[in-house]
Computed example of a mutant assay.
Amino acid sequence: MTATHATVATFALDLSREEQNGRALREFIIPGVRRHAGFVSGSWLLDRDAGQSIAVVTFSSREAAESFRVDVEGNEEGRSAQGIALIDIRVLEVTATAAP
């Protein structure tokens, strides 16, 4: 499956809850994202100095990426419970990829 669009999301984190956030990422967030229609791949990045996480999730269509964006924006309650705040999420066209 080839990625055509990606979401790039930036989140503010409460780093005092880093262990809890890591567990939630591994046990709930990543499995849920994998089940999203059109999912191709995902990477979660940590900027410890800024207290931010950046998630790049690629999808097989713009529609799938837009649907995912709406789901993320609508999950304020779930994020707040984990000490995570959405700063921004965008849907971008994938123009090239590189892999080994």
Rank of each mutant, 00 (worst) to 15 (best):
G32I: 06
A12C: 07
D49A: 15
A96V: 07
I87Q: 14
V94N: 03
A12M: 08
F39P: 04
V94K: 10
E27C: 03
S61N: 12
V33M: 11
E19F: 03
I89W: 06
D14V: 03
I54H: 08
S67P: 03
L25V: 11
S43P: 00
S53E: 06
S43W: 10
F28S: 14
G51F: 07
T10L: 06
G32Q: 09
V91K: 01
A65S: 00
A9R: 07
E18M: 11
R35E: 15
E93M: 03
R26L: 13
G42T: 14
W44D: 03
E93N: 04
Q52Y: 05
D49H: 08
S43D: 11
T10F: 04
E73H: 04
F28W: 06
V57K: 00
I30D: 11
G74F: 04
R48K: 12
L13R: 06
Q52E: 15
F39E: 05
G83L: 13
V70N: 00
F68K: 00
D88C: 07
D47N: 13
L92G: 04
G74H: 01
Q52N: 11
E77S: 04
M1V: 12
E76S: 11
N21V: 15
S16Q: 05
T4S: 10
L92Y: 07
V56R: 04
S61M: 12
I29A: 13
L46E: 11
G42H: 09
L46G: 04
A12R: 14
A96F: 11
V70D: 06
A6S: 11
V72F: 08
A64S: 15
R35D: 12
R79T: 03
R62D: 08
A65C: 01
A37K: 12
G78Q: 06
T2I: 08
S53W: 03
T58H: 10
A98C: 07
D71P: 00
E73W: 05
V72H: 01
E63I: 09
A81P: 03
R48E: 15
D47E: 11
V56E: 06
N75P: 01
I30V: 15
L92V: 15
F59Y: 13
I30Y: 09
G38I: 10
L13K: 01
L13N: 03
N21K: 03
F68L: 02
D71Q: 13
E18P: 00
R48M: 08
G32F: 10
F28N: 13
E77I: 05
A99L: 12
V70S: 04
E66I: 08
V57Y: 09
T58G: 01
D47H: 10
G42R: 05
R79A: 12
A3G: 00
R26Y: 09
T95G: 04
R26D: 13
D71Y: 09
R35N: 09
G83W: 12
S43R: 13
T2M: 13
T97Q: 14
N75R: 11
R62V: 09
I84L: 15
H36M: 13
V8W: 00
V33E: 10
P100A: 07
R26A: 15
V72P: 02
R90S: 14
V8D: 00
V40H: 10
P100T: 07
E19A: 14
L13F: 07
E76H: 09
S61W: 14
S43G: 06
G32N: 13
L25N: 02
T95A: 08
I29C: 05
A85H: 06
H36G: 04
V40M: 08
A6D: 02
L15V: 07
E27L: 12
